[in-house]
Design a protein around this nucleic acid. Sequence first.
DNA 1: CGCTTTGTTGATCATATGATCAACAGTTGG
DNA 2: CCAACTGTTGATCATATGATCAACAAAGCG
Lengths: 212, 212
Amino acid sequence: MSKHTGTPQDAPRTAKRQRLPAGERRQKIIDGAVAFFAKVGLEGKTRDLAKDLGITQSLLFKYFESKDALIEAVYAQVYLERLSPDWPVRLADRSVPLRGRLLAFYSDYSKLIFEHEWMRIFMFSGLAGAELNRRYLEHMHRMILHPLLEEVRASSSQAITPDMEDLWNLHGGIVYIGIRQHIYRMPCPENPGPAIERTVDRFLQAFSVPTS
Amino acid sequence: MSKHTGTPQDAPRTAKRQRLPAGERRQKIIDGAVAFFAKVGLEGKTRDLAKDLGITQSLLFKYFESKDALIEAVYAQVYLERLSPDWPVRLADRSVPLRGRLLAFYSDYSKLIFEHEWMRIFMFSGLAGAELNRRYLEHMHRMILHPLLEEVRASSSQAITPDMEDLWNLHGGIVYIGIRQHIYRMPCPENPGPAIERTVDRFLQAFSVPTS
DNA sequence: CGCTTTGTTGATCATATGATCAACAGTTGG
DNA sequence: CCAACTGTTGATCATATGATCAACAAAGCG
């Protein structure tokens, strides 16, 4: 008798209501909030989020002091797992050809960021001027692109060397695939790998770094 | 006695209030709305906009039926003046070297789009899924990048030819300069010209198009 | 000057929204 | 089975927000 077969109507509602341990519920709320705010933006209404989650709006405020606190939790969830500390190391590992390092990095990185929720929340928070956003880009500049600049210069066999703007161009051209796909919702290749590879090769070729 | 010297306090308010012909006021509202929504996003409150404009909130609704109608006017103002119909023609003019055509286009185009209000409103409306946004990108694809693809292929002297993804990469890498500057508010070169030129040259070099 | 026209305001309405709280109900431990 | 604990709800509050409207006032016109 403890288990009803859901509401007798045809509504696809799972059960009447769920009672969960605090930690679990909190995580469910965060996950739902990530999807919700990615969909409608950070100005999305708490009542709509609650409806998506199948809970009451007031319950949100048992787990988060305010809507801002909830958004901070969303930021933390989305940003934190996207900064792998070993990339700076691997990118500087000169026992591997530079092309291989670049392709490995952008293969991993594109898998991480070409994701609907990340792309959109990153853009929403960027437009809102969120601090985390600035820190993330600062990190990208200092820990990824700057070392990469040194690597390209070291591997380049010509007088012409890249500057930081060239690195940002490489990076931006790749990131733009995700922007087209998730921000502008344009049709994009299901696998960005080949396009990335060609982009990296064009870049390296321009600085006379061997590409094969 | 018709002209007070403004409020006697130290407030920098221009005059007590202005009475303008309808067309003029309407344009002032649109201009102010463009700046306002670019600053705070399309969810900006009409009362705040009115305060920026130095008018009453209710006056907005004398000129626009609803907030949505005002936003449509903002879109029209911002989008319409950015689609020059002669670019497709100039990009296909083979009496000029391809490099010159590309540099001329991106020189003009970057001047148009690397502008705070355009960049931000384009991104806000893109995230909101605005119809105009999709049409704009469709236009960019069909009228600019597709012809450009044919031009690069025609000028290329090698077996390797670009595909549409390569063109989007060229385009995205350049546009990303504006995104860094106006969306992420990162420090950027005051003149993007050299970076654009190097980007174009790397692209052409990859397809063996003469760059000098 | 008086009359009409029209740009502008201040008060107000209906609803939406973030946040709060007492009461309810499932769970655990004795 | 009772009691304490805690996850959850429904009602409610205070304020914000898009939108409306009667009244005011500056300009045009006879």
